[in-house]
């Protein structure tokens, strides 16, 4: 039979790293026994002494957190403002877009008013859950890997020269987090479209034999690129080149798949009942947006790198050039 003390000790040990358990157990039991003895010597009956001792030791989970010396929060005060800004951004931009797309698809489908509203709400809830989950997950990961005050682990101690020039327009922690969260969300969307969003997968399931895993790999590279760029701390022609290679690696196969009609799932397009003309229109819209996004991204990075090389100021959000009179 397990005693009250056993139950207390086991509850503490449950949440303590395994290799520390035997030693902590032995010490904790001795400490409890000492406290009980002292109460019994003071005239308390043993059962009451045990209860009082354990109550005084308090919540076993809290004691375990003390032993394990781990933070008792998911996202600390350093990361919280950035997390909140990003969540607000996602919920105010991505959610409405998803809801509108869901409505448009259902309306084109000729659905009733009720179905349209239902589809919009369910798409918004699913998307909200994923946005919140993955964003929070990445921030918790950053928190636990020590990316907080002052960004990633610095190679040197802070000096005046490290103050941003507000010319280079380099990344803030928020931009870095966004660069990291976007590829992850795209990977999640890529995997989920196979099962959830509609009755049939949106993208051609044949792509799973090579192209969809390939895109996931490229997106993971984008994450690595975001970390590398943030640690590097400056734009340069190397950054331009790496960014351009990544853009081509992701955009080129997508454009090729789209133009050879291997991108969308024929069953999904059939279920929309749009006929062939809208299909062409959809394909060319997606091709154009993929190409334009890639070109904009490459050009934007190249311009930033060139301006940095020449020491020219960057237009950066929230920064106004102070006029000299």
């Amino acid at each position: 039979m397990t005693t009250l003390i056993d139950r207390y000790v086991f509850t503490v040990l449950r949440r303590v790293p395994e290799r520390q358990r035997p030693d902590i157990e032995r010490e904790l039991r001795a400490s409890i026994a000492d406290a009980v003895d002292s109460r019994v010597d003071g005239g308390e009956p043993e059962a009451a002494a045990i209860e009082a001792t354990l109550v005084e030791l308090g919540d076993p989970d809290k004691l375990a957190d003390g032993y394990a010396d781990r933070p008792q929060y998911l996202i600390g005060p350093d990361m919280f403002p950035v997390w909140r800004r990003l969540m607000t951004l996602f919920f105010t931009t991505v959610l409405p877009i998803v809801a509108v797309v869901a409505v448009v698809v259902k309306v084109l489908d000729g659905a009733t008013f009720g179905t349209v509203i239902g589809a919009a709400i369910s798409a918004a809830i699913t998307t909200a859950a994923h946005l919140a989950f993955w964003t929070t997950g990445i921030f918790a990961l950053l928190e636990r890997t020590g990316v907080n005050r002052g960004g990633l682990p610095m190679r040197h101690t802070w000096a005046l020269a490290d103050l941003p020039r507000y010319e280079a327009g380099f990344q803030t922690l928020g931009q870095f987090a966004a660069n990291l969260v976007w590829p992850v969300l795209l990977i999640v969307a890529l995997v989920l479209q196979q099962f959830t969003f509609f009755d049939v997968p949106v993208l051609d399931p044949a792509g799973w034999s090579f192209w969809w895993p390939y895109l996931i790999a490229v997106l993971l590279l984008e994450c690595a690129y975001a970390v590398w760029l943030f640690r590097r701390g400056a734009w340069s022609h190397t950054v331009t080149a790496v960014n351009a290679v990544l853009a081509v690696l992701s955009a080129a196969p997508m454009i090729w798949l789209l133009s050879t009609e291997q991108f969308f799932n024929p069953a999904f397009l059939g279920s929309l009942g749009w006929g062939t003309d809208p299909l062409n229109w959809l394909t060319w819209t997606v091709i154009a947006s993929v190409a334009l996004t890639a070109i904009f991204d490459v050009a934007d990075t190249a311009i930033r790198a060139e301006r940095t090389r020449r020491g020219l100021p960057h237009p950066s959000p929230g920064h106004h050039t102070v006029g000299v009179h």
């Binding site: 005084e56 004691l63 032993y67 010396d69």
Partner: peptide
């Protein structure tokens, strides 16, 4: 000082 603060502190 409470026992549940002191014991983990000793290990730290």
């Amino acid at each position: 000082v409470e026992a549940n603060t002191l014991y983990p502190l000793l290990r730290r």
